[in-house]
Design a protein around this nucleic acid. Structure first.
Lengths: 193, 193
DNA sequence: CTAATTTTTTGCCTTATGGCAAATTTAGAA
DNA sequence: TTCTAAATTTGCCATAAGGCAAAAAATTAG
């Protein structure tokens, strides 16, 4: 199992920049495959994010609690994507957001500490880290721009266009908060489309 | 002038990771100081972003045009910050957003091509690039989360708390679109506070 | 398979925000 | 300084989205 998962990750990395055999071995040694049930929590609010996850199977979401304690989904993540709590992992400070599974998952886990070692020992690995960070950053900008420029309905339409599976795999309540609207509004939008 | 500006940039970089003398020289050689007037355009919609800018003096904004052709500010940037059009610069594809100055500016400019050369010639420079990308990425996530979770009034209050000078340096219309609301709404929020 | 729980839809009314238009203030140019 | 243009505020009304509550549908557990 681990062989297969690590192979896939390395494959994704190598589309960005070749890896030395030594680095590949270190990635293999430093990471673990974990199996985790639906609705299990990978990171609690207030906890510092210590791991980056690669999603081999399943899906995750991260969410914030607002003033009234309602949870607002900030990201959905699926197969072949990397999952972290952006602020907490990058700064190594306590998280304002939580991360949980939406489905049973198979994840590859690498610790922050190990990752830093790899970055320092293999400077070229920073190239890959930089490119991946850029790619997720672009998606973050897209999110902000949709929220700014599009109506609730348009945001919903854009979401199902770009990530059609999201509707099958996440509940309406989660999707609504991700779009910055209430369940009721989303339900109404759907009934009209 | 150029000495002073490059020194400041390198100083900022060195807070992240030390630079070899050779790399410092290459940064100096590869970059140009440019003086540019208020309201001048650094990047047009449809154009591919070829430069990254360091703001020594002045301020910039980037903006999108919505369906009706109204412009919506996506970022404000001030002294000691780096400015790019995120999507276009990272992907080297035509930009959906434009970048213009809000004030007369003194900028340090480095081409995408030169930057890639530096990344390849000095692998450790990717470390700095990665960390900076992470920092701006965090800010992008904050923007998206504010738009999702806070009311127009709360977003305005958060903005003046975190970036108080923004009010003196950007017009209300720009600030309103950055907050995802109309000028009128922002004007009303201000009159009530 | 049935009961219990969760998720989704719907109705009614309130509130926040937008659209248009005009008045006022501020900034810029001659 | 004075004139002109741009930015900001305000009023009035329309529309989008939220709050509360309950019904309906779907999922899960026993």
């Amino acid at each position: 199992m681990k062989d297969e998962v690590v192979k896939l990750v390395i494959n994704i990395f190598e589309r960005i920049h070749p890896l030395s055999e030594n680095l590949k071995e270190k990635i293999f040694e430093g990471s673990d495959v974990i199996h985790i049930k639906k609705k299990d929590v990978l990171l609690n609010i207030g906890e510092t994010s210590k791991y980056i996850y690669f999603i081999y199977n399943g899906s995750l979401r991260s969410y914030y609690l607002d003033q009234e304690g309602k949870d607002n989904t900030s990201w959905f993540l699926f197969e072949n994507e990397l999952a972290i709590s952006v602020y907490s992992f990058f700064t190594q400070k306590p998280s304002f957001e939580a991360v949980e599974t939406l489905e049973d998952c198979v994840l590859l886990r690498l610790s922050f500490k190990k990752l830093q070692q790899l970055y320092l020992e293999f400077p070229e690995f920073n190239y890959i880290g930089r490119i991946l960070t850029e790619q997720y950053y672009i998606r973050s900008e897209e999110k902000a721009n949709s929220l700014r420029m599009l109506s609730a309905k348009e945001r919903y339409q854009q979401l199902i266009e770009r990530y059609p599976e999201i509707i099958k795999r996440a509940s309406l309540g989660y999707i609504a908060s991700y779009l910055g609207i209430t369940q009721h509004t989303l339900s109404r939008i759907r009934s009209k489309v």
